[in-house]
Design a protein around this nucleic acid. Structure first.
Lengths: 235, 235
DNA sequence: TCATCAAGTATTGTTAACAATTATTGTTAT
DNA sequence: ATAACAATAATTGTTAACAATACTTGATGA
């Protein structure tokens, strides 16, 4: 979305409203303020972002292509609600991709990268202590996205961005009440393993981390919240 | 794109023009009739497909989200031209994903699946014998997509669809003149290995297959063709 | 009371006209 | 001849009005 060739100031300004909508929706989903199934009305969004419906529709079309939003003809746009089967596929895809990231990260992580991740973990722990779940979720996702950035493969990074976002939706639907996503000590141990430089053990650790997350799902009941769109987007 | 929940006849009809455009462009790229850098004019497409510009723009926006098309503000839509660095990333992503597919395929391939793949290989060989390169390229891509279908993970299948398409563009830009993509005997050996049921060896074989393909690239010169859009889309 | 149906409202989908920007062509001056 | 500039043409971007569809509300009848 942001890797257009020959980018200049005027070009990036040309899609400002569209990008603002996209980013706002992605962030809101990553913090579980926009739960699965939320309706995204065109008028509503064009009012909120003070742009015309054409921009809104471009943003929604792009999000639909990433399977974050579902477009139902004559009905509108909705945040996708992953099925249990899709959840399984998302987790398998994550294990697949993060395995390769792990191998790359061991070879490429710098001291600054390690420090950044340690700091991320501290902030995540703080958010958990503060019971700030949106922030905790966003930081947890950022930890995994950091692995992708370090690994230096923008294709896999984009795939993982989609998968982690859908993971957040899956957790919102099916995660047992007590557990709140990734266990922070597991993130810590992952960084330990990156420092130690044993890529095989790192792969196992991340694989186990993701399997642990998936094992915590309970497909028997779902959850729901009721906030206005403006509150959820926090504009 | 085609896995919308609650689909009914009227719904699928509602996006008929958009899907026709998308499919036509995807097929044209997969057969190298639309090379990297091709301009996709809005008027041009709305004339060809007899629809309004709004449908065209939805299709182009969706293709841009899959990194098949690049949208340059005030300039229009173009088929992406992968850089050497992007080529490396695409191949690493393919190895990552097809490794998982290989393990799944060994566990899940039925006799019908094997027969289908053998037939695909025969047709591909025939296309090569006939010097029908577009058909050969499309069939070669379909072979890999068949692995994804058998493996039963629609997320990875969609990712691979994008990656194989970008691979076709990469081959069109950087592949040495003589070689024309995947060697068919390697596809044959892959099916042999699926039948034998040794997933580790299958993984190695597919990994080698992809590395072999990547090794055939030559980033020093590029190629170009000049056909009208109507000819390239073959409408 | 509940289900069914109809009218009205709101939302999405389509179309066309207009504005802004870029590409092209032709001219002029060096 | 070539480079720089101006006028023209073509393309993309924006907006608004209208059409079609879906949703909501209230009335009617069993």
């Amino acid at each position: 979305m942001s890797d257009v060739s020959h980018e200049n100031p005027k070009d990036s300004a040309a899609r400002a409203p569209e990008d603002a909508i996209t980013q706002s929706i992605l962030t809101a989903v990553s913090e579980q303020r926009l739960p699965a199934g939320s309706k995204l009305g065109e008028q509503q969004l064009s009012d909120l972002f003070k742009c015309n419906r054409a921009n809104v529709r471009r943003a929604l079309t792009a999000l639909a292509a990433q399977h974050v939003v579902e477009l139902r003809p004559n009905r509108g746009a909705f945040i996708v609600t992953p099925s249990p089967e899709e959840a399984r596929e998302v987790f398998e895809a994550r294990r697949t991709i993060e395995r390769t990231l792990a191998r790359n990260v061991v070879a490429r992580a710098s001291a600054e990268d390690i420090a950044y991740m340690r700091n991320n973990i501290v902030q995540e722990a703080q958010a958990r202590a503060d019971n700030d779940k949106p922030r905790e979720l966003r930081l947890s996702r950022m930890f995994h996205m950091q692995l992708a950035k370090i690994s230096g493969n923008r294709v896999l990074e984009r795939f993982l961005a989609e998968l982690t976002l859908r993971t957040t939706l899956i957790l919102g639907l099916y995660n047992a009440a007590g557990t709140s996503g990734c266990a922070e000590d597991e993130h810590d141990r992952i960084v330990d393993q990156i420092e130690s430089g044993d890529s095989d053990r790192l792969v196992s650790l991340i694989d186990a981390h993701l399997r642990h997350l998936e094992a915590g799902l309970d497909f028997r009941r779902t959850r729901n919240r009721n906030l206005t769109l403006a509150e959820q987007l926090a504009i």
